[in-house]
Nucleic acid binder design. Structure first.
Lengths: 318, 318
DNA sequence: TAGAGTGTCATACAAATGTTTCAGAACGAT
DNA sequence: ATCGTTCTGAAACATTTGTATGACACTCTA
């Protein structure tokens, strides 16, 4: 390409993008045809002669979403800016998740919606758009805490059902049984067999993950007295999903507690068309990386800093 | 503007400019109407949320930049093509200045950034890349107009600080005092002494210059009632920098107004490592030539026609 | 509660842009 | 000179974009 050609391209690009002239005007001004101006402009763009930036912090979030989809098995991702106050993370994630889920419900016919538990999900239902899906069932996917915490799974499921005008089914059990044997006994009941079967038919599951820090509600209020965080950590756990503790690769750890959990097995998530995980906060980076590695979800809603940390972990462990 | 609105704008801008979707596709993808997508896109552009650069330069402009650096004391120069519409000059200069300053901030550790005032600087901050320089201070270097013009110095400084993630200090005073005596009284205050001292420690100053024509905002809205343009012209002034009026050699003219200005003295600019002047338009050729003669800045951002005119003046009087 | 003001949407339309097709010009090779 | 290749312009067209209009819902105020 000659230098004159190059200069012409620059001139056209300048007039178009900087001065905002139309291609016709540019053609007139430079004494060329509109077609030529159009072609030059196309070449200029293709050559990277012009570059466009989005000047906003939020743009980085969008970039991260694209990277997540490109580099992991995720089908979709929502990344929001990390709030300055750590305790605001569930709030902003809740909003984002509600927006996402509301649209999903509008656009897809969802008959079964499984739901978990936690502060982020609580915030999510608070921001759900009201709707009317009378033939949809909201199914709670795990038992509640035994302590009378306001965050119990029943309330979350029923409130969500109320908001979106759907039916509601509860999973009426504690999270952990006293022993592996009693867990088996409980799950052998017809009621639970039916429950589990129904849960496997959910079209959508909305879950969050827990970590092993003091911030985790499950750790603080949900663990049986005879189980310590240290023993979980010792078994290689980095966090839990639906009460089952996972190692950094996303596999359930060998720990007695995992034999006592009264909830669907993690593998069941593979039967569900759309698994949405909404969780954030740097303390959850490891467990989030784990579920990404194990491809346990299709959609992730997370905050920017945590996504970066989790992606760092993913890449680091190749 | 709410954060959600912002989020939506960023998303629309991203999909449009980065991924090249059509507005209809974007509307579908985000669940909004095409009209709304179109409007959001317009707002994003108007707000400077997206900025477009032409990466290659016009040979003529590059040549002029070299000549400027060779023939004057300038350390660096940026010359952009003169737009057909005179009122586009601040816009194109703003883009170019933003690009230059953004890069400068990335490449140098800047702790203090002094900033002036005017349409060009306003356009500049609109196109600044978002960044995070929490230990940088943006210091406004001159007081505001007394009329409630939208271009006030506070807004410019704070908006710039917001964009680049820096702190902000204001220079809270009118530009001109009622008399030389009251100016001295005001400047004797501790507040102002401290302000001036801090301004002298700026690593970078971003300023523009004003001329004596009707286009000048300072002339139109900033002059005290008892001062006429004619008297300034009579005193030999060709324009101002930081409210101080200069003669063609770049020396402050002997005029009462120069004793009433509440701003750092022009000589203070010599203490600042990098003084960037961004101004253009043929009416400013004389004052630009003046500051070049007096070596008052290190970097000039200007348009081609004005640079030629200013260099003509320099050589003529050389 | 009425009404002004605001914002949104659907529709329609005008302007700008991107693309295709075809015909001719320029150019080089034979 | 002739042929084929490549580039360009003219024209026509389809798509995209920007804008105007009227209808409607919502909010705020009186």
């Amino acid at each position: 390409m000659t230098s004159e050609e190059e200069q012409l391209r620059v001139r056209v690009a300048w007039l178009y993008f900087m001065e905002g002239l139309t291609q016709s005007d540019i053609a007139d001004r430079l004494g060329i045809t509109r077609l030529r101006a159009n072609r030059l402009l196309g070449e200029a763009r293709a050559d990277g002669l012009v570059s466009i930036q989005v000047n906003s912090r939020l743009a980085d979030c969008v970039t991260l979403e694209r990277q997540l989809v490109a580099e992991t098995a995720l089908r979709d991702a929502v990344v929001v800016p990390t709030p300055a106050e750590a305790d605001q993370v569930p709030v902003v994630l809740g909003r984002a998740t509600a927006e996402y889920l509301s649209r999903h419900l509008d656009e897809h016919r969802v008959r079964g919606l499984g739901i978990g538990w936690g502060t982020t999900l609580r915030e999510t239902i608070r921001h759900m758009r009201a709707g009317s899906f009378p033939d949809m069932h909201v199914n709670s996917m795990m038992g509640g805490l035994t302590h009378g915490l306001e965050l119990n799974t029943f309330e979350i499921a029923s409130e969500l059902a109320r908001r979106v005008g759907a039916q509601c089914n509860y999973f009426a059990a504690p999270i952990y049984a006293g022993s592996a044997r009693s867990r088996d006994t409980i799950l052998a009941q017809d009621v639970f067999r039916d429950s589990l079967k129904r849960l496997a038919t959910n079209d959508v599951a909305l879950l969050s993950v827990g970590d092993l820090s003091r911030r985790s509600l499950l750790i603080r209020y949900g663990l049986p007295r005879d189980v310590t965080v240290e023993s979980l950590r010792g078994a290689g756990a980095v966090g839990d999903i639906m009460g089952t503790f996972l190692d950094p690769r996303g596999q359930p750890v060998r720990h007695a507690l995992n034999q006592r959990v009264i909830a669907p097995p993690v593998a069941m998530l593979r039967d569900i068309g759309t698994v949405i995980v909404a969780s954030g906060g740097l303390n959850k980076a490891a467990i989030i990386a784990a579920i990404l590695r194990a491809k346990l979800c299709h959609v992730l809603v997370c905050d920017e800093a945590t996504v970066r940390a989790a992606m760092g972990l993913l890449r680091g462990a190749g």
